[in-house]
Each structure stands twice: as structure tokens, then as C-alpha cells.
Amino acid sequence: MRSLLIRCYPARWRERYGDVFLALLEERPLGPYDVADILLGALDARLRSRRRGSPTTQGRGSPMSLRIGGFAAILGAVLWAVGGLLSIGVAGDVDGQVPVAILMVGMIVLLVAVAGLSAFQARSHPGAIWVAFAITAIGTVVFFAGYAGSVMIGGDGFWGLWFIGVVTVMLGSGLFAAVTYRTRVLSRVGAALIGIGIVVILGEAFLHVEALIPVGMACFALGWLTLGVEAIRLDRPASAIHPA
């Protein structure tokens, strides 16, 4: 995978830095955060390579940061809370496609959050973090397949896919939360809330107490919100104030 990532950089860059960069990547396990960071770095190198010779050679790339994951976690939490509450009819009669579309966007955003918040966990548990990312991604794809099917074909036959997608994304989030809790990074309270939310929602399937769903959704969303706020707090720029 490391060789593939280096191939994303321009040839001239690889000639100059490729060997030492590969050695650097071999120093520690790579997680989704690192892969995203390298891809953004490669994009930056390509933009700079194209702009060479023009007055501005700084490029417009962006570094990967906890902030990206933090904002994604907060947005994902809000979308999950809104989509979840709408889907159980809290806001009255709403077109069924609306909460599904909100949840789908929320899943994609949570996938970004899992990648963006996984920098430290991937150092000690790279396998578990990749599995959490993969499960969340698979859940999102399954949910999207259900959504696409319902829009293109119609009917209620796609509820099963939606449900499997939601449960799968929750399991991915649960694994991510467990690793986060265990590695003592970000907020352990946030990680615990995500876990509690999942247990409560999945428990409802056996207990059939509908009142548990909003409670579980609230815990799940609050957990992600807490992780996101903590990530942004950790990533406060040291030089955000530009001296005169």
C-alpha cells in the first residue's frame, strides 16, 4: 500500500523524496488518517507541480488535521440526530425520503470523522481502526444501495437494506469508539456515549420499547459531538494569531 501511495505523487517529487519518504512511511503503521494525509499531500504536490513557473507556486493543498475529523464528527452527529428523529416520526408527517437522505449524508460525514479522528488510535490498533473504517464504509454503501433502489425502483422492499446499512455503520462506530476508549485519546466520555447509544438502539430490537430509540440516538449523537469538540479543542492552532 505504501508504494501505491507514493505513486500518487508527481514523478519529479518521487525522484527527489521518494526513497526517504517510503522509509518514513515504514516507521509506523498507517491508519485511515495517515492515508488521507498522504493523499492530500500528493494532491498538494501535484498542484504545486502544475503551478511551477507561475507567480504563485504555493499551491492550494490542505494539510490533514484533527480539525477536519472534529468538524465532520459534529456535523455527522447533528445529521444523525435530525435524520434519526425524523425517521421515527418526531416531527410529524415528513416525506420518508427526507430522513433517509439526511442519514445517508450523515453516514458519509461520519466516515470522514472516523478517518479524521483515528490518527492516534491507528498507532497502537491499526488493524481495529481499519476494520472500523471498512465496516462503516460498507454500511454506508449498503444504505446508499437501499436509497438508490427506493428512488429508482420504488416500493418498501428496500427497508431491509436501509436497516442493515444503519446497523452496520453503528457497529463500525462502536468498534471505533471502543478503540478510542481503550487508547485513552480524545474523550473517553464521548466514546462511552457512542457505545451506550448503540447498545440501547440495538437493545430496542429485542425489548421493543420504542422510547429507547430517541434515547439511544441522543447518546450516539452526543458521543460523536463530544469527540468532535474535543478534537477541535486539541487542534487549536498555536499560531492562529498573526503578529503585526
Binding site: F21, D37, L40, G41
Partner: peptide
């Protein structure tokens, strides 16, 4: 020092600028 992660992509993007 900062308590924040720095990925290899960010490191080299910044190093190249600093070197230039």
C-alpha cells in the same frame, strides 16, 4: 510538543516549502 498528530504528507508538504 503540540499534542496533535502530524502525518507524513503534511510533514513533507511543509518541508518542501521550507527547503525552497
Amino acid at each position: 510538543g503540540s499534542g496533535r498528530p502530524m502525518g507524513a504528507g503534511t510533514l513533507y508538504a511543509a518541508l518542501v516549502r521550507l527547503e525552497e
